[in-house]
Nucleic acid binder design. Structure first.
Lengths: 353, 353
DNA sequence: GTGAAAGCGCTAACAT
DNA sequence: ATGTTAGCGCTTTCAC
C-alpha cells in the first residue's frame, strides 16, 4: 500500500484508480465505469473514495490507452497582432469549458516554423486551429491525411475539405470602396496585401471591383502591393506621396499596414482628412483616439476564434465524416472622421454627395 | 505484426519503439538508450529503422512512465492586452526550442477562473508561468506545495519563495514624476491602479514619493484610484476634469487606463499638451501616432516573458532546490510630445527648466 | 452490474 | 553494450 505525502488530513494513498477501487471496495473496472458515467451500484462509496483521496484521473494514462490528448493547438503567425490575440481569446474561451487545453504556437510569420510546429504538435493534440502564415497547400493536407481535424482561420486553401472560418473580406473591401466613392473620391489608391493569400487577394479584388463598377479606374501607381506589415505600409504610403498626382483617398488592407501608412503621413505632415482620406481594414484599439479618428472596416475576430473552436469541438466529438463547413462572418464599416470628401479640385467621376 | 496505413512507400508498421527495435534487430531497451543519447553499437541500424517507420516517441507513454508532461501553462488575465500578448510571445519563443509546449490560459481577470485553471492545469504540466489576476496568496502556494514550479510575472506575492520577473515599477513611476516636475509642473495628478496589487501599489508609491521628495504634494482630489481598466481610466479622468482647479499634468498607471483617460480628454475636447500633459505607463503601439504623440514609461514585456520562460526552464531542468530568483527588468522613459511645460500661470514649486 | 486480466508505449532496474 | 522484464494508470474485452 504505497503512500504519498499530500497535504490532507493524514498520510493518503496515491491518487490512482487502483487505490480508489481499493478504498471503495470494488474493482478498478467499476471505478472506471463510474467515471465514464455508467450506472453503478457502489456509486456512493466510489464518490466518497474519490473525495477522500483527491483522485483525478491521470491524463497520460488515459491518453496512452485512448489516444486522446485533450489538447488542441492554435497556430498563429503573430500573437501580438491584436487580430490574432482576439482570435486566441475567442478560441481559449470556448475550450475553457471543455476538457481540452489550448497550446499557443506563434510562427512569427515563417512558414518553415509553421511546418515544424505542425509536425511536432500533430503527435500531441487532437485538433488544430490554424491561421496559416503563408498559403502553401502541402503541410495541412499532409497533416490531415493522418486524420487530424484542422480548422482554418483567416486564410483558406484551395483544398476545401477543411473546415474554415473566414470573414467577408470581399464585402468589407467593397464597402470601403463604396464609402470612398460616395464621398466623391475618384483618385483612390490601395495599399494591398500580397495576392498570394486569401485576405490579400480577396480584399484587393473586392476593392477594385467595386471601384470599377462605379467607373473608377485607379492608375497603376495607385495600386501598391505590400506585405501586410507595418514597414510595408510605411513604404507603400511613401511611394504614394511621392507621386506628382497624389490620390485623395487610400485604402489600407490590414491593421499593420494602416499603422505604417499613418506613420508616413505623420512624418510627411500630410493632414489626414483635409489632404487625404484614409480607411483601414481591421479596427485599431486606438482608432477612435487618432486625430482624426480612423474610419475602418472592422471584423469580429474574437467571435471568429470562438466559432473556429466550436467547429473543431464538433470534429473532436467524433464527427469526422460530416461535410466541411465554411463559415463566413460579416464585416462592418465603422465611419469615423478620417474619410471626408476630397479637396475640391479635379474630380467628377464618382458620385459626389 | 500489426500494420497501419501511413502514407509511405508501402504498408508500414505502427511507429512504436517495439517495431523500431524489431526492424533494427535489437531490443527496445537499446532503442530507448539510443533515443536518450547513450552510446550504442547498432546506432546506424536504429537510425535507419526510425526513419523508415517515421517513428516518433509517444508522449503519453513517456509521460506515464516519467511523470513529465513536456508542457507548461502560461496564465494571464487578458491576452488581448498588448502587454500580455507580448509577454506570451516572449514565453512562447523560448519554449519553441525545447520539447515543452505552452498552454495559453486566459482568466479574464477573474481570480475564480484563475483558481480553477491552476487546479486543472496542475495535473498536466510541469511548470507554470503565472501573471496573477489578483494577488491572493493562497492558490499558488497551494499549488507549489505539490512541487509544481511556478514563475510569477508582473505581480509578486508576499511569499518570496517563488521565482519572479518584474519590472522596475517604482523606478518607472519615479521617472514619470521626475519628468513632469522637471517640465515645471506642480499641479500633478495620478490615475492609479488598485493598491492591492504590486504594480498598482509600487507605481503609486514611486510616483508619490518622487513628487514629495521634490516638494510636490497633490491634493486628495488629484489622486484617483481606479482598476487598471479602460473604463476606469475614463471615469477617473472625468472626475479630474470636473475639478475647479484642474491639474496641469496626469500620470496614468497602465496602458488601459491611459486609453480611457485619453478618450475622456478627447470627448471633453481638452487639448493634450497645451491644456494638460499626459504620461502613461506602458507604451501603446499607436502611441507615436497620437496627436500629440504620447510620452510613456515603457517596459520590456517580450523580454520579460522570455526571462520568465528561462527561469522556469531552469527549474524544469531539475533545479528545484536553488534559491528563488527575483529578476527586475528596467523601464524606460520615452519622451514624445504629450508632456510639455504647464500653461504659464500659477506654478513654482517644481524645478522649472 | 461486476471482476480479472491484458495491454497501450515507454523507461529503468536488473542481469548478462 | 545489450536483452529481459516489470510496471506507470488507465480502459476494455471477456467471462460471470
Amino acid at each position: 500500500m504505497k503512500t504519498i505525502s499530500v497535504g490532507g488530513t493524514s498520510g493518503l494513498q496515491a491518487a490512482t484508480i487502483n487505490n480508489v477501487a481499493r478504498v471503495a471496495g470494488v474493482s478498478t473496472a467499476t471505478v472506471s465505469r463510474f467515471l465514464r458515467g455508467d450506472q453503478v451500484r457502489s456509486a456512493d462509496a466510489i464518490k466518497a473514495a474519490i473525495d477522500r483521496l483527491g483522485y483525478r484521473p491521470t491524463l497520460a494514462a488515459r491518453s496512452l490507452r485512448s489516444g486522446i490528448h485533450y489538447a488542441v493547438a492554435m497556430i498563429v503567425p503573430d500573437i501580438v497582432n491584436p487580430y490574432f490575440s482576439s482570435l486566441a481569446k475567442g478560441v481559449e474561451s470556448v475550450f475553457r469549458d471543455t476538457p481540452y487545453r489550448v497550446f499557443l504556437c506563434n510562427t512569427d510569420e515563417q512558414s518553415a516554423v509553421e511546418d515544424a510546429v505542425l509536425d511536432e504538435v500533430m503527435h500531441r493534440v487532437d485538433g488544430i486551429i490554424l491561421a496559416p502564415a503563408v498559403e502553401q497547400e502541402d503541410a495541412p493536407t499532409h497533416v490531415r491525411e493522418q486524420g487530424m481535424p484542422i480548422v482554418l482561420v483567416d486564410r483558406e486553401l484551395s483544398d476545401k475539405s477543411f473546415d474554415s472560418v473566414l470573414v467577408d473580406n470581399g464585402g468589407g473591401a467593397r464597402s470601403a470602396a463604396r464609402h470612398l466613392c460616395e464621398l466623391g473620391h475618384s483618385r483612390i489608391a490601395i495599399i494591398s496585401g500580397p495576392l498570394s493569400n486569401t485576405p490579400g487577394r480577396v480584399r484587393y479584388k473586392g476593392f477594385m471591383d467595386e471601384l470599377n463598377r462605379r467607373g473608377v479606374f485607379p492608375p497603376g501607381d495607385f495600386v501598391q502591393f505590400s506585405n501586410f506589415k507595418e514597414s510595408g505600409g510605411q513604404d507603400a504610403m511613401h511611394r504614394l506621396m511621392q507621386l506628382a498626382d497624389r490620390p485623395t483617398a487610400v485604402f489600407c488592407a490590414n491593421n499593420s499596414m494602416t499603422i505604417g501608412a499613418l506613420k508616413t503621413l505623420k512624418d510627411l505632415k500630410v493632414a489626414i482628412g483635409r489632404e487625404i482620406s484614409v480607411i483601414g481594414f481591421d479596427d485599431l484599439d486606438l482608432g477612435p483616439l487618432l486625430d482624426p479618428p480612423l474610419t475602418v472596416i472592422d471584423r469580429p475576430s474574437e467571435e471568429q476564434g470562438a466559432t473556429a473552436a466550436r467547429l473543431l469541438l464538433r470534429r473532436l466529438g467524433g464527427t469526422m465524416d460530416k461535410e466541411p463547413e465554411h463559415i463566413v462572418l460579416p464585416t462592418r464599416l465603422i465611419v469615423r472622421a478620417s474619410c471626408v470628401p476630397p479637396p475640391s479640385e479635379q474630380h467628377s467621376t464618382g458620385t459626389p454627395s
